[in-house]
Nucleic acid binder design. Structure first.
Lengths: 335, 335
DNA sequence: TCTCCTCCTGAGAGCGCTCTCACACTGAGA
DNA sequence: TCTCAGTGTGAGAGCGCTCTCAGGAGGAGA
């Protein structure tokens, strides 16, 4: 081999094909070139096994072909609770793969990692950022927005920074759940709400309230934090507050599962004594005992749509800043 | 501002601090420099908000500071089943964060993504690769090994390519589970094995067999694929094969949960009629009904150790190619 | 005072790519 | 035959950094 050690470069391909570096670059990037040089270059590329040097390209184009997915939950909780993040990762990764971008995962558990992410984004190590699971007080969205890099959130960010987001119809889904309970003859319908510093928590409670309000029933509310244990605790609380309740809408499947457990412990039968509806439609719901009636949200679609939006922004296109995906009631045996 | 538009460069910092580019570079990289230039440079960096350009640095150093985590499961299944991957991601990300590396997530579902990953790795877009959840026939490990890039696997890869790996004591854990069942007076102990093209499936079955063999009991085996549904099916099969069995060791918590369901459906009480032991100690185990006795594997540790090993390799250090982490029996109510 | 060694510093090359710009070449129209 | 578009191509600069190498300053030893 005449060439020096190491990977082949544009230069060596050009030499072999008998053209200039610029022409090889054109072929690689799909620009206009005569049939004959095209063929010569392609052959040289194959023979040499040439692959463009990503860093060199980034240096001049200012594109990194990297998209960050930032999960600002505490590192320990991110993946352990429900199936939401995995689903989002899945959807995101499908779209990025098609666009030939890579997914950089950043877990923003500690303050230190917060700072690190900000630095990394500000330094344009990535072309865009996907931000999931926002809490109310989180300063990260605003900080990232200030860097001027495209940011797309999962759910409408609380606080004053307007950022494009992809959400689901939490309110409509919750209302549909409550209406289902009303339609099946339930009269004292409680809810286990999610954390009130997250949109999913806030809007699902609002949906519950509005549907109940329409039927002039009174609301019975306990608040959890989307975890199973909090669902157990909240259900106990509700039973203590109103032993006569005959239905409960939980703002997550995990909390619904906790409710099932607490109800079983309290000797209530589901759905005979108390009907239970969850939210999310994760695997948990299908495998619960009894299988859970729940509100499905299209998790993978959320990921896909977030990725599509951030790619459009990164490409300089304008986008509709708000996407709301539909939710759908899935009736199983618990209600 | 005197400087041109865009982010500050080494050049502009140097100008402001009244030193050369080389000196600024030394400060940034922590090399020897006099106190006074040190201070001047640091001030200039602060005032300008300078952050090194990653691409430019990569171009010359040949380091990308990126580590890939490749999950070669089918894209749909990766995250949906158990809590294994999330845990690994968590551990990996903790270590990478400390080392100031970024995590690139690559889901290798389709053949196309396989090819894309190989190309990306061969082109040295990453400094190292972490390979999780290998199946027997997977050609990816060998292909990646050929690129000369550091690769660390989760579990000993099947096939002829010797690669460094971080595994757990599957055999010992399974044996401990079976011994516990024997010690508590069980005599007809079945197993729901995992897929036999994965080390975790193979070794856990081997552990079951060896412990049983030592006590000269006969083995009763059904094979699942680590999913809940397969656990249900396998348990039904086992009950049909041997209605008198009084214990079952499942090679994953998810399959154990499936077994619980099938046992309940068949009217058997757990642990009174049939004792059940799982493997993994995921959240599922704690929340099962009854709470699952299971073999804990230190999932986060696996991730951490994999990351540490790949970083060492990437730094040119030699490593012990094999790490086996201990497993531990956690006794709850199901056995 | 002179030499030698040590330590810090700056100049400059070069990493592999893209992209502008000017030039050559073709064929159409005058 | 000459001009003028129009098209493809090559030369060369430059992206922002690291790193080698030579030179200059300062102190120690003769």
């Amino acid at each position: 081999m005449g060439r020096a050690a190491g990977r082949p470069t544009l230069e060596s391909v050009a030499a072999r094909a008998g053209v200039s570096r610029a022409t090889v670059s054109r072929v690689v990037n799909g620009l206009a070139v005569t049939e004959s040089s095209q063929a010569a270059v392609r052959r040289a590329i194959d023979e040499l096994g040439y692959v463009p040097n990503h860093a060199a390209r980034t240096l001049v184009t200012q594109r990194t072909d990297l998209i960050a997915l930032v999960l600002p939950e505490s590192t320990d909780r991110v993946f352990s609770d429900d199936q939401f993040f995995p689903g989002v990762v899945n959807g995101v990764s499908q779209v990025l793969e098609q666009a030939d971008k890579q997914l950089v995962l950043m877990l923003a558990g500690s303050a230190a990692s917060h700072a690190r992410i900000e630095r990394s984004v500000a330094a344009r190590h990535v072309d865009g950022v996907l931000l999931a699971s926002l809490h109310g007080a989180d300063p990260l969205p605003a900080a990232l927005a200030r860097t001027g890099i495209p940011v797309v959130c999962n759910e409408r960010p609380l606080g004053s920074t307007p950022l494009p987001y992809v959400g689901v119809d939490n309110k409509g889904g919750a209302a549909a759940a409550v209406r289902h309970l009303l339609d099946t003859g339930r009269t004292r319908i409680a809810t286990i709400a999610g954390p009130q510093d997250m949109i999913a928590g806030i809007d699902r409670l609002a949906g519950y309230r509005s549907a109940l309000h329409d039927s002039s029933r009174r609301s019975i509310v306990a608040v959890g934090d989307f975890t199973l244990d909090s669902g157990v605790a909240a259900m106990r609380q509700l039973l203590a507050d109103d032993p006569g309740l005959d239905a409960v809408f939980a703002a997550s499947d995990l909390m619904a599962q906790g409710a099932l457990k607490a109800l079983r412990d309290a000797g209530r039968r589901v759905p005979d004594d108390v009907a239970v509806v969850g939210f999310d439609d994760t695997v948990i719901a299908r495998h619960a005992d009894p299988p859970l009636t729940t509100v499905r949200q299209p998790i993978i679609q959320i990921g896909r749509q977030m990725a599509r939006q951030v790619l459009r922004l990164a490409a300089g296109e304008r986008i509709e800043p708000t996407t709301t995906l539909p939710t759908e009631l899935v009736v199983r045996q618990s209600a």
